[in-house]
Amino acid sequence: MAWYLIVLLVMLLPFEVFALSAEDVMKKSQAAFLYPGKDFKARVGMKLISKEGKERIREMTMLRKNYGEPGGDQKLFIYFFQPADVKDMTFMVYKYPVKDDDRWLFVPAINMVRRIAAQDKTSSFVGSDFTYEEVSGRDIVDDTHSIVKEEKLGAKDCYVIKSTPKAADVDYSYKLSWIDKANFLPVKEEYYDRRGELYKVFTADEVKDVKGFPTVTKRTMKNLQSGHRTEVTYLKSDYNIGIEDSLFSERFLRLPPKKWIE
């Protein structure tokens, strides 16, 4: 009898003793969402849809390689297919935690590689409703996090985390994230502006298992104030494909290897 009681207590224990802090949840989420595997590749389709339903298309191949622990250095290589007149344009990011990222862009029409600087915390990524930071991830230490509640969103048990920026460096005053307890992927995010009004909503619309990594393959960011939204689809997602370090260089920026971008 006593033995059963012990088993029961042990089963209950994780919820008591190993309860996660808000930071832990966000760290796990960052690892699951932005850092799974050694590297990652996907054909990304972006639809920029205006309030009137007019569309702009962005299509690109995105390659990503992790260096070190989740939350650490990362390198990104993006090759654009669409819009048609930017075909062959490439974009490279060296992402560092804490300090500003390095970015290069190759402009094929004038055969020129330029370093570019952008206000990544507020600037829109290629005209979409995502900021650069929302694509590449925000440093966890930039915000204070707290667990507001735990609730079910659809069939998913979620933590609801409130993240408040320490500095007023972004357009929102705080963000609520619904993090799936099962896989730590974000299910939904709500962005509240400086007036405290909800203005942007992120939803993970489709999650697929790719080589054992749960991956968000369809997502939407909607700006409630402008009525504009961006729908993103990941096709041909793959992990651990062995991307070489040399890819992330000016040479390949100018002449991206076919095997990686196709």
Binding site: L48, S50, K54, E55, R56, P83, D85, V86, M89, F91, L105, V107, P108, A109, I110, I116, A118, Q119, S123, S124, F125, V126, G127, Y132, S226, H228
Partner: peptide, 30 residues
């Protein structure tokens, strides 16, 4: 004004890569 359509297209894209969406929306249609 640059000499080719490709240049113009890529410059506009370059601008739209980090400008506010309205900057471009206000002056050209989709």
């Amino acid at each position: 004004v640059p000499e080719t359509k490709e240049m113009i297209g890529q410059y506009i894209f370059l601008f739209s890569m980090s400008a506010k969406p309205s900057d471009l929306d206000n002056v050209v249609d989709y």
